[in-house]
Design a protein around this nucleic acid. Structure first.
Length: 426
RNA sequence: GGAGGGGUUCCCGAGUGGCUAAAGGGAUCAGACUGUAAAUCUGACGCGCGAGCUUCGGUGGUUCGAAUCCACCCCCCUCCA
């Protein structure tokens, strides 16, 4: 492998992406030439969400710097469940489901890495490949013997499960750390992988792997973690009213995804630009300075939304998201053409087919999911929070009917300031 | 196996026979103000237009009336063996 020109550690540091690392100076010099590193992603759902984006993009940053990234999808660890900083024991998922999720994650993860990069082309692996052939006795004798339970229960990541009244941890989840550690040792053996990265909640598991690799293979390997993303107001990052922001466009449309980033708080947006885009730190500083000088609405959110949406959903997803956003937020809905309406639907604006017009507005809100119950629908209406085709709904007796539809078949329903839904008939 | 503690509405957590759809906090949603921010204020937050109905791990029971009492069952935690 070729020597690298970029000091990746320096870059991560300047972006605020470096939470912890082992033997800093030594790791820095080790990374002076192209190395192999890995990051694990467990199948806990059919898609990753934006929480996984930081380590995923960090993997890519390493690749851009000339290193060889391995994305590990945890077909084995996903069957066990990582207890790290989890308040309570989790339900086990069936092997079929986990297997299905593994396939989904493998292709999802792949879109962020370069597999045609020659020496440092990316690799995707599944830890089930080496775990499934291990038998219990060998595992306990060869791997388990290297772990001290005394040390394991000291780990911060499981402490609350051990200390907290009312909590607990099964042997299954307690063993998770050993499995993940074994992955690192195995990847060292198979791919000469010398670095594991992950979110800072993975620190305990990563150091476990470093210890195990030293003991099993007498080799020095390293660990590095990225910070967990937090919001300035203390709220949980990555959730909205509509739920988790997923990377899969079927679960979170490019439009919703774009909107999520567009709504980033001023206090967070420059940090997010560093975390979630490949814009240089100096460019980001310029954006920040310009925003501060302008006194007007900052540009940063728009740039963030554009960059991240393009990264995850490509140019096509981005332009669809921008088209919808422009139509709904900047113009008069009345100016939409019939083709525009159809395009909104194709672009992924949530939409529902309604039948049996005229339909009461309360029913329509519930059917489209804009209100959870009739009661809520009425409350929204009485709060003046609902509009149809740009016209405020004044009474819950109002109906959707052909005469008021755009082009005889479209209704743009709006609840609150930002939530839109397209209802249509044939 | 023994002893004790516990399972309440999205989360935390009060509530030990009627005044309780169930305190309080958080989260969330809406409105006002704004920049599709933040902060702040106001309101909502089981279902029902309503009379009312359905909830407090499960199933039965006591009672005019139960989240609250009794029985059995399930799950969790702590200590002992």
């Amino acid at each position: 492998m070729t020597a690298t020109s970029i000091d990746i550690i320096e870059d991560l540091q300047s972006r605020g992406l470096l939470s912890q690392m082992t033997s800093g100076e030594e790791l820095k010099s080790v990374l002076g030439q192209g190395r192999t590193l890995y990051c694990g992603f467990d199948p806990t759902a059919e898609s990753l969400h934006i929480g996984s984006l930081v380590p995923l993009l960090t993997l890519r940053r390493f690749q851009n710097a000339g290193h060889k990234p391995i994305a590990l999808v945890g077909g084995a660890t996903g069957l066990i469940g990582d207890p790290s900083f989890k308040a309570s024991e989790r339900q086990l998922n069936s092997t079929e489901i986990v297997e299905f999720w593994v396939q989904r994650l493998q292709s999802q993860v792949s879109q962020f890495l370069d597999f045609d990069a020659g020496d440092n082309a990316a690799v995707v692996v599944n830890n089930l490949d080496w775990v499934k052939s291990t038998n219990v006795l060998d595992f306990l004798r060869d791997v388990g013997k290297h772990f001290s339970v005394n040390a394991m229960i000291q780990k911060e990541s499981v402490k609350q499960r051990l200390d907290r009244e009312g909590a607990g941890i099964s042997f299954t989840e307690f063993t998770y750390m050993i499995l993940q550690s074994y992955d690192f040792a195995e990847l060292y053996k198979r791919h000469n992988c010398i670095l594991q990265i992950g979110g800072s909640d993975q620190w305990g598991n990563i150091t476990g792997g470093i210890d195990l690799t030293r003991r099993m293979h007498r080799a020095q390997v390293y660990g590095l973690t990225t910070p967990l993303v937090t919001k300035a107001d203390g709220q949980k990052f990555g959730k909205t009213e509509t739920g988790t922001i997923w990377l899969d466009s079927k679960k979170t449309s490019p439009y919703a995804f774009y909107q999520f980033w567009l709504n980033a708080a001023d206090a967070d947006v420059y940090t997010f630009l560093r975390y979630f885009t490949f814009l240089s730190v100096s460019d980001i500083k310029e954006i920040e300075a310009a925003d501060q000088a302008s006194q007007a609405k900052p540009e940063a959110q728009g740039i963030l939304a554009k960059e991240v949406t393009r990264l995850v959903h490509g140019d096509e997803g981005l332009s669809a998201a921008q088209r919808i956003s422009a139509a709904l937020f900047s113009g008069e809905l009345g100016e939409l053409s019939e083709a525009d309406c159809e395009q909104l639907r194709l672009d992924g604006l949530p939409s529902t087919k309604v039948e049996n017009l005229p339909k009461g507005i309360v029913d329509a809100l519930v059917e489209t999911g804009l209100a959870k119950s009739n009661k809520m629908a009425r409350e929204f209406i009485s709060n003046n929070a609902v509009s149809v085709n740009g016209q405020r709904v004044e009474s819950d007796a109002q109906t959707l009917n052909i005469e008021s539809a755009l082009f005889g078949r479209y209704f743009v329903l709006k609840r609150g300031k930002k939530l839109f839904h397209l209802a249509y008939t044939n």
